[in-house]
Deep mutational scan, measured.
Amino acid sequence: EHKIILYENPNFTGKKMEIIDDDVPSFHAHGYQEKVSSVRVQSGTWVGYQYPGYRGLQYLLEKGDYKDSSDFGAPHPQVQSVRR
């Protein structure tokens, strides 16, 4: 199983989107239009992308907690697509 939770604010606060065993080419299409400032990967390895359609900067997200976007190497809290 692959499970990831994306949070609007640092330290796992604010609006969140939970994804289980699915690739998401556009967070906006899924109704999530917030920034991504923290991430909790509960299982599996994911790649987050700066822009929709798996474009832009890529961020490797392995199991663990990323309490701020800088923890996974993002210069800005901008992640708009993700895949396993």
Results as ranks from 00 to 15, higher is better:
P25R: 08
G44L: 01
V24K: 09
L6C: 12
H28G: 14
S38M: 09
M17Q: 05
V39S: 01
P25G: 05
G44M: 00
P25M: 03
I20R: 06
P25A: 10
H28W: 06
V47A: 01
D23C: 00
R40P: 01
T45H: 09
A74D: 05
M17I: 15
Y49Q: 01
H28V: 13
P77L: 10
G64E: 04
Q58W: 05
N9T: 09
S43Q: 09
S69A: 13
V47N: 01
P25N: 12
V36G: 03
L60H: 15
F12T: 05
H2W: 10
K15F: 01
M17K: 04
H28A: 15
S38R: 03
D22Q: 12
R84P: 01
D22M: 08
P52F: 00
R55Q: 12
V79E: 15
L57R: 15
S38L: 02
A74S: 15
R84M: 06
S37I: 02
D68H: 07
E34T: 12
I20F: 14
I4V: 00
D21P: 03
L57H: 13
Y66L: 06
I5V: 13
D65A: 11
Q50F: 01
G64D: 08
K35S: 11
S38G: 03
W46L: 02
S69K: 10
G53R: 15
Q78A: 13
Y32S: 14
Y54M: 09
F27R: 01
E8T: 08
E34W: 14
D23H: 03
P77W: 08
D71G: 12
I19T: 08
I5P: 03
E34R: 10
S70K: 14
F27L: 13
D71R: 11
Y59S: 05
D21H: 03
G53D: 10
S26M: 07
L61T: 09
D22C: 08
S69M: 15
P10G: 05
I19L: 14
Q58V: 01
N11A: 13
G44P: 01
G48F: 08
Y66P: 12
L6H: 00
D71A: 13
K3G: 01
P77C: 10
H76W: 12
E8G: 08
D65W: 08
I5N: 00
Y49M: 15
Q50W: 01
S38I: 02
R84E: 15
Y59T: 03
V41C: 04
A29C: 10
V41F: 00
D21F: 00
W46P: 03
Y59M: 14
Q78G: 10
S38W: 00
Q42D: 07
T45E: 08
R40A: 08
E34S: 10
L60A: 11
P52G: 02
E62R: 11
E18G: 03
P52V: 04
P25I: 14
S70A: 08
E8P: 05
Q33F: 13
D23M: 02
Y54H: 00
G31L: 08
E18Q: 06
D22S: 11
S43P: 00
V41P: 03
H76D: 12
G31D: 06
W46V: 08
M17G: 00
L6I: 13
Q58P: 09
E34Y: 07
Y49L: 04
G48I: 04
F27A: 03
G44Y: 05
S26L: 07
D65E: 12
D21S: 02
K67D: 06
Y32F: 12
D23L: 00
K15G: 12
D23G: 01
K3T: 02
H2Q: 08
H30M: 12
P52K: 07
D68S: 13
M17N: 01
K3H: 13
G31F: 04
R40V: 07
L60V: 10
H2G: 02
Q58Y: 08
L60T: 13
F12V: 05
I5M: 03
H30L: 14
D68G: 13
H30T: 14
P52D: 06
G53V: 12
D71H: 14
L6R: 01
Y51K: 06
K16C: 07
H28D: 08
E62A: 10
K35F: 07
P52H: 04
A29T: 10
Y54L: 03
E62D: 06
D23W: 01
P10W: 03
E34H: 11
E1L: 08
K35R: 11
D68Q: 12
S26I: 01
Y54K: 08
F12H: 14
F27D: 04
D21E: 15
T45V: 11
R55N: 05
Q33M: 15
K16L: 07
E8D: 07
E34Q: 15
V79F: 14
W46H: 03
E8W: 00
V79I: 14
H28Y: 14
L6S: 05
M17C: 13
S43R: 09
L61G: 01
G48T: 04
V41Q: 03
Y66N: 15
E62T: 09
I19M: 02
Q58K: 07
G53C: 15
V47H: 09
V24P: 00
K67G: 13
D22H: 15
Y49D: 15
S37D: 10
D23R: 02
H2P: 05
P52L: 02
G44S: 03
Q50Y: 00
D71E: 11
V79L: 09
A29S: 09
Q78H: 05
S26W: 12
V39M: 11
Q78V: 14
D71I: 08
D68I: 14
S69Q: 10
F27W: 03
I19Q: 10
G31R: 06
P25S: 10
D23K: 09
W46Q: 01
V39P: 08
P10L: 09
E1W: 02
V39H: 08
G64N: 02
P25Q: 04
I20Q: 11
D21Y: 03
N9V: 00
L57T: 15
N9Q: 11
H76T: 07
V79S: 01
K3S: 11
Q33I: 15
G44A: 02
L6E: 02
